[in-house]
Amino acid sequence: MIYLPNELGKINKKVINSNYLNLCLYEKSKNDDFYEVCFDDYALVFINEGQKIIHTKQQDFTINKNEILFFTKGSYLIKDCIRNNYYNSIIICFKESILIELIYKYKSLLTSNFATDEHIFKLNSNELLNSIFTSFLPCFSYKTNEEIIKLKFEELFLALLYSKNNQSFITFLKTIITNFKLPLFQIFSYCEKDFQNVLEMAKFSNMSLTNFSKSFKQSFGISAKEWLDNKKFEKAKFLLEFSNKNITEICLEVGFNSPAWFISRYKKRYKTTPKQFQKAKNLYFLH
């Protein structure tokens, strides 16, 4: 059994990990028997060369070159079929949290109610989608900023949403929405409001801290604290680049109590200190 995304490095060394997304350029030159894969996050696979066969309890799926397959969480038997002595695909695993932000941003396009028992969805790619998937390839060879990866994923999200044969993708999104353990209107409210801590979020939901924390993780795929910290760091990064406030002021404004903790975690997350980032990016500090 291979568990993805945590074990992407076992199937190929060309892997990009971030807080929201995990990408893998998966290449093979040898046919194997079926092997079992368990997706702990949602995923999509784009076949660039070769063919993939997926066996489930309900049916078998075959995905060919220039086709896209969407996986909900679960376990599947998979076989990679070599064509022209080579198999190549791009695997993107993603958490509910990044989808929630995108669904909220484009919620007017996903208003109808929907339910389905399907777990795998397939659609044919097109020239635009092919070009977007191809644009991910340089990211595996050069160090790429996490924000660029997020923007490229949003570009892919929109291209899928607006493609002529988008029904499979919309069905996939609505399947994820039906699995949320929290009401969708509350989830959208979390995207709009600035909370200082998880207890505030639980009170907003009229739930106990324990029940809220459990439901939140089931809906978002990450803990409420991790999700809230992600939002705070994103806001801090924006303020570091575009405001003239000092590090302590920014730390307190986004809701962190300890500047030392903030600096340490910022450096671990972004591989640079807040001050170094500010001096490099902020026009107020450029001389």
Rank of each mutant, 00 (worst) to 15 (best):
I222L: 12
K245V: 06
C38S: 13
L158R: 01
E49I: 01
I92T: 06
F46R: 13
F262T: 01
K10Q: 14
S29W: 08
I222F: 09
E49A: 05
E154L: 14
F133G: 02
M1T: 08
C139G: 02
N19T: 06
R269D: 09
Q278N: 03
P183N: 03
I54M: 10
I63R: 04
C191P: 00
S163T: 05
S141M: 10
F220Y: 11
K279C: 03
L25S: 14
M201H: 06
N145R: 07
I63N: 04
E253P: 10
E27D: 08
S141T: 13
I90L: 11
F212V: 05
I187N: 02
F216K: 04
T56R: 04
A236R: 03
Q218D: 14
E49Y: 13
G74F: 02
L44V: 06
A202Q: 04
K14S: 14
F114C: 06
E253H: 12
N211G: 07
K65N: 07
K14H: 13
L102W: 00
C81K: 09
R265Y: 05
K268T: 11
Y162A: 04
Y76T: 02
F220A: 13
K28Q: 09
F238A: 11
F285V: 01
S97R: 06
F169C: 04
K52Y: 08
K267P: 01
F46N: 02
K152D: 01
C251I: 02
E7L: 12
Q59N: 12
L283A: 09
K174F: 11
I98H: 04
I103H: 04
M207E: 05
K231Q: 08
S205P: 00
S219Y: 08
Q51E: 14
E226I: 15
I63V: 15
Y42N: 07
S258W: 14
L69M: 15
M1N: 04
R269E: 03
F216V: 12
L129S: 01
L184P: 06
L286S: 02
T144E: 09
Y270F: 15
N246Y: 12
E67T: 03
L182P: 07
D33P: 00
K79F: 15
Y106I: 10
L173D: 01
E234P: 02
F256S: 10
L137M: 13
N124E: 15
C191F: 09
L129W: 11
T273P: 05
Y270Q: 09
I63W: 07
G9M: 14
L25Y: 10
L209G: 00
T62P: 11
T56I: 03
M201I: 07
D41N: 06
S131V: 05
I176M: 04
K52N: 03
L8H: 15
K10Y: 14
N211C: 05
F204I: 07
E200L: 11
N31I: 13
L240S: 08
S163K: 07
S208V: 05
N12Y: 07
K174M: 14
F277L: 15
C93K: 07
T62D: 09
L161A: 03
T210M: 11
H119A: 12
N6K: 11
L252A: 03
S135I: 03
N12M: 12
G221K: 10
L44H: 02
N206H: 13
I68V: 14
I170N: 00
S108P: 04
Q218K: 08
F238E: 14
L158I: 14
F188N: 05
K203P: 06
